[in-house]
């Protein structure tokens, strides 16, 4: 099928299979390897991207669901060589260890802040409930999202 959609605000046209996963399109066809594959079954959240500003699993999304839609990946957050506030807060709050969950975690956090610019710690934990981190106890991650929300002051 011919697929027309948007990735990180750029129009992309691809000839692909309808049952090709968004994850494979991003990683293999577009070279956007920041999106990670951790479980291939929608349980770990490492492959999280935004689809029309909502967090979804790219491993459970097929080309047949993408026509005309907007995908945002971790690579789309950095603007003009400057990290997004969320990315910077993850770095500064020491919320990153092995990093394999990080990009998915940041995308889930991004989706949260787009909908709810002033989340409570409980709301942050719920928003990240589908993103597993094995290195940490989520303490710094929750702190990083909280601080990013404060720094953004409601802007997203």
């Amino acid at each position: 099928m011919k697929l027309d959609f948007f990735v990180n605000e750029e129009a992309v046209t691809l000839e692909t299979q309808p049952q090709r996963r968004l994850l494979d399109i991003l990683r293999e066809d577009l070279g956007l390897t920041g999106t990670k594959e951790g479980c291939s079954e929608g349980e770990c959240g490492a492959c999280t991207v935004l689809l029309d500003d909502l967090a979804v699993h790219s491993c459970l999304t097929l080309a047949a669901q993408l026509q005309g839609r907007r995908v945002t990946t971790i690579e789309g957050l950095e603007k003009n060589g400057e990290l997004d506030i969320l990315q910077r807060c993850f770095v500064e709050e020491i919320a990153i260890q092995c990093g394999f969950c990080t990009t998915g975690m940041i995308m889930s956090a991004k989706a949260l802040l787009l909908q709810n610019p002033h989340p409570t710690p409980e709301e942050i934990r719920t928003a990240l409930s589908g993103n597993l981190c094995r290195c940490s106890g989520y303490v710094q991650i929750v702190k990083a999202v909280s601080r990013a929300a404060d720094e953004m002051g409601g802007r997203v």
């Binding site: 929608g42 959240g45 999280t48 689809l51 909502l54 967090a55 979804v56 699993h57 459970l60 999304t61 889930s108 989706a111 949260l112 719920t126 928003a127 409930s129 589908g130 993103n131």
Partner: peptide, 9 residues
């Protein structure tokens, strides 16, 4: 149901 990601799809 599931996680936020699952609920969005």
């Amino acid at each position: 149901v599931g996680s936020p990601q699952i609920r969005n799809k």
